[in-house]
């Protein structure tokens, strides 16, 4: 299998979807002509390949971009729109939360909205108005689906599933992965189903569920723990909605311990949902209380030492697992 960067894998999915289906088009700010020239950006080269009819640079208008997606999808197109950075999704949130998520329900099932929103996430020295992990907001809106890939193959496969899903899907892309994580990517229409988690590393002493770039933090922690004789199972959820609870419960029943990890802040974060769900389903099999490892409840700080302090680290994971396993 060819090795690609995460950004290249996403670009491959976009191109493949456009080749397959004339109804697929892309819209967003700087997705055609960008201020950045970087071959690892997911829309790199697509304007040249597909032309301005299908790769549409928009004005700086997040509400209109999201409205475009809702209205065009209701007419049977399959829009794939980009929101440049995660915090900017607040400007599109009325269209996503009140319209994409609800209009099918309000129509009594007469209408459908097969749209995809790609949003760039991550912590990258730009401060808290460019970095803010809002996936729990989206997951809390019934009617939306939320995918959050951690590697090139999943980034391609989940995006393909999102584009061809008949419902609105937000795909969160951890931007630093675009160029930092390379991996084998199956060729062709290799979809990864929404709602199917992946065991990223097998282990027997504790279960850690996570998603996106945090998967790599968890894997580093698992490697360090292995040297100490502690075996951590890492589950890459891949999508938050639908959530593969069966995979999580099966692992917890094996290990008896559960941790949730994410780059988002802790309070009301997705980890709270994970811990509650595990506690409800597997209470009798847990040998210790579930545990959340998450960012502190502050905006993402700018200055480097504080930014590093914000982001959950492999050390924090190893310490939490050690405490849990050794009591």
């Amino acid at each position: 299998m060819p090795v690609k960067s995460t950004g290249q894998a996403i670009a491959e999915a976009l191109a493949l979807a456009m080749d397959r289906d004339e109804n697929v088009f892309l819209a967003g700010e700087g997705i055609g002509t960008s201020i950045h020239v970087n071959p690892h950006l997911p829309t790199f080269g697509l304007l040249e390949r597909f032309g301005p009819r299908r790769v549409r640079d928009t004005p700086v208008s997040e509400a209109a971009i999201a409205g475009l997606a809702v209205g065009a999808s209701c007419m049977g197109l399959r829009p794939v729109v980009e929101i440049m950075f995660f915090p900017f999704i607040t400007l599109a949130s009325d269209m996503l939360v009140n319209h994409a998520a609800k209009l099918r329900y309000l129509s009594g099932g007469l209408s459908a909205f097969p749209l995809t929103v790609r949003v760039k996430s991550g912590v990258f020295s730009a401060g808290c108005q460019h970095s803010h992990h809002l996936e729990a907001w989206l997951a809390h809106a019934p009617g939306l689906k939320v995918a959050y890939p951690s590697n090139p193959a999943d980034a391609k496969g989940l995006l393909l599933s999102a584009i061809f899903d008949p419902d609105p899907v937000v795909v969160v892309e951890d931007m630093p992965l675009y160029w930092s994580i390379h991996g084998e990517v199956p060729e062709g229409d290799a979809r990864v189903p929404l709602g199917q988690a992946r065991v990223a590393r097998e282990g027997g002493d504790a279960t850690l569920a996570t998603y996106g770039g945090a998967v790599h933090v968890a894997l580093a922690a698992a490697e360090a723990l292995a040297a100490e004789g502690v075996s951590l199972e890492v589950i890459d959820l891949r999508s938050l909605v639908p959530l593969d609870t069966a995979a999580v419960f099966a692992s917890v029943r094996k290990t008896g311990r559960f941790l949730a990890l994410h780059d988002a802040t802790r309070f009301c974060g997705f980890g709270a949902e994970l811990c509650a769900t595990v506690a409800e389903a597997c209470f009798g099999e847990l040998t210790s209380p579930p545990c959340r490892i998450a960012a502190p409840d502050i905006p993402v700080p700018f200055t480097p030492a504080q930014e590093a302090f914000y982001k959950p680290s492999a050390d924090q994971v190893t310490q939490a697992v050690r405490r849990m396993v050794r009591g």
């Binding site: 409205g67 809702v70 065009a72 007419m75 269209m95």
Partner: peptide
């Protein structure tokens, strides 16, 4: 009669999307 929005001011962006599909 494709969509109704009761979020005041939200109907025009939806209409732009529908019109885009017609144009496309």
């Amino acid at each position: 009669v494709l969509m109704t929005s009761t979020v005041v001011g939200a109907a025009p962006p939806l209409a732009v999307g529908a019109a885009f599909a017609q144009h496309y």
